[in-house]
Design a protein around this nucleic acid. Sequence first.
RNA 1: CGGGGUGUAGCUCAGUGGUAGAGUGCUGGUUUUGGGAACCAGAUGUCGCAGGUUCAAGUCCUGUCACCCCGACCA
Length: 574
Amino acid sequence: MKTSQMFFPTQREIPRDAELISHQMLVRGGFVKSVAAGVYSYLPLGWRVHEKISQIVRDEVKLFGAQELHMPVLVPRELLDESGRSSVPVLFALKDKNQRDFFLGFTHEEVVTDIVRSTVNSWKQMPLYLYQIQTKLRDEPRPRGGLIRGREFTMFDGYSFDSNEGDLDAIYRENYRAYERIFTRCGLKYLAVEADPGAIGGSENHEFMILTESGEDTVLRCDSCGYAANAERAEIPPSDVSDRPDLLVQDLVSTPGAHTVEEVCAFLKVSPQQLIKTIICTASDGTVVAGLVRGDRELNLPKFSRAVGIGALELADPATVVRVTNAPVGFAGPVELGVSVYVDLELKAGGNFVVGANAADAHLLNVTPCHNFEVTGWADIRTAVAGDSCPRCAGGILGDARGIEVGHIFKLGTKYSKDMNALFQNDKGEKYPVIMGCYGLGVSRTMAAAIEAHNDANGIAWPISIAPFEVAIIIANMKDEAQTTAAKDLYSSLKQAGVDALLEDRDERPGVKFKDIDLIGIPIQVVVGKALAEGAVEIGIRGSAEGRQRVAVETAASYVRNLVQSEKDKLQAS
RNA sequence: CGGGGUGUAGCUCAGUGGUAGAGUGCUGGUUUUGGGAACCAGAUGUCGCAGGUUCAAGUCCUGUCACCCCGACCA
C-alpha cells in the first residue's frame, strides 16, 4: 500500500470525547470513526488490525480442531425463551413487519445449541467445537472508553460439545492454551484469573486479563503460588484468629447527620476497623437480608448471594431500607433487626463494634456478634484486597493489578442442553444432555487493550503481529528522484518477499510523515533520505533507543526481512 | 437510572445581550524539504434542536436531544 493512495484521516488534536489513550489514538490515527455512543466504523487501518487479530485467533483455535461457522445477528425470541434469557436487560429487541419478536445476537449459546440438537444425536459425533467471529450487540447501560466497551463489538465465540466431562475438561484446557498462544502472539501480557461466572452459570471459568493501569477490573495474585482471581471472585481464607476482647455494655449514642463510615468514625473518633457496616439487600422474590462487614471493607454481592443461597441479591432501595430499619439510609444495624443477618468471617475477631441503631441519627457502641444480636450465618462475604492472605497456599500474600478483560471461558455443563433439550445417545443407547463449554474473546477490545499496553507520546506502538503494516518506507524528499526510485525498488522487493510494507510517498514534508507513521504505529521504519547519497538507507524499530541503523541499499531488503522475522519470533508462543 | 460536564468552522477551542472569531486543517500561488514549514490570497457556520423573554439572544429562561466522565449496571 502507498500512503498517497491510502485513506487514513489522521488528526493532530486529541478528540474532545476521548479520554482513554486507546480511544484517543484510534481516532487520531484514523483507525475508527465514532457513529453513536459505543458504535464505531472501522476505517481501513483499523480493519487491518482487526483482521490480523482475527486471523491469529483462527490460526490458533484451528490447531485443536475448531471449525468456523457463521450465525445470524437476528435471533427469534422463541430461542431465548427456551433458555430463559429473553429478559436479559442488555438485549436489543425489535419486531418484524408481522410483529414477530427478534433480538439482536448478544452471544449465541441458544442458536448454536439449536443447530446441534437437531443434528447431533450420537456420542460418536462428539467432541465438536464450533466457533464464529462476529458482531455482537448489547444495549450496554453505559458504553465507554471507545472500543473498550461498545454496544456493537466483535467477539470470537466458541462452543464445545462433548459426551462426557473428561472430554469437556480436555477441550477446555486446549482452548485455554490456545488463548495463551493468541495473546502471546498479539504481544500482550495476559493473566488468566478465576472469575465470577455471573448468571451464565456453569462451574469452572477463567477470565483472560491484559494487565494495564487503565484496566477496569482489579485482579489479585498470590506472590508465591500463582493463584490469581478477579477481585470480585477472590476467596479469603478463614482466619484462625477468633479472640474476643472483654465485652463492654451496649450503649446508644447520638450521631446527628453521620450517615457514612467516615462521618461516624470522625464523630465518634474511632477507626473504620472498629465499625460494622450493615448492608440491606433484597432477592428477586422480595426476601430482605442483611450482610455485615467491617467498616473498611466492601460487601461482595456475588459471594453474599452464594452464601445466602436464594438467588442473586442486590442492594435494597432506600424505601426498603427505611421500611426494614425504621431509619434513613446510613443507620442500619443488626441489633433487633427483623431480617436474617449474615456476618463476614473476619468479624469473628475483635468486639465492641460500632453499629447503626436502626434509628435516625443514632448508633450503638460495644456491639459484638452472637452477644448483642443473633447471627444467621457466618460466611466469606467481603471483597478481597491486596494484602489479604492467599486462599490456596500458606504464607502467600495477594497483590493487586489492573486488567482489561479480553477473554472469558466457561464450562457450561448441561445448562443449555437441558433447557433446550439437546440430547445424545451414549454407547449403551441412553439419552443424555450434551455437555457444553463456551469461550469468548473480544477482538475489538483486544485491539484497544493492545494500545493501552503499547503506546508512547508519539502514538501507538503496535506489536508487529497486529500492526496494520509491518514496515513503513519513508521517502524523505519526494523531489529527489534517486530517493523515490530506491524506495520504490525496496518496496517492490519487500512486497515480493511477503513483507507487509507501506510506502510513505506523500508529497509532504518529512516531519509530517515521521509523525504520522509514528502515530499509526508501524513498528519497522525505513528512511530513504540523505544517507542515500552514500548508498545507504536508515532502518530502525519504532521507539527503540538505538535509533536507525545505516544499511547499504543493496542489502536493505534482506535486512528488513530478517528484522521482521526476528520481531515476529519474539512474539511466538514457546 | 442517579450525579457531574460539554455541544460555536472538518478538528481543538475563545466568544457575560449589540456586525460570527482564533489556531489548526482545507483550496490556489511562491519559496521550502530529516520530526506536524514560511509568506500571500481564498473558501468554510441551522452557534445541537424547539419554544420563550427582549428593540436586539451564541450569550438570559424553559424544555428537549446528543456526546463524555463517575456511580449503579455490565447474561
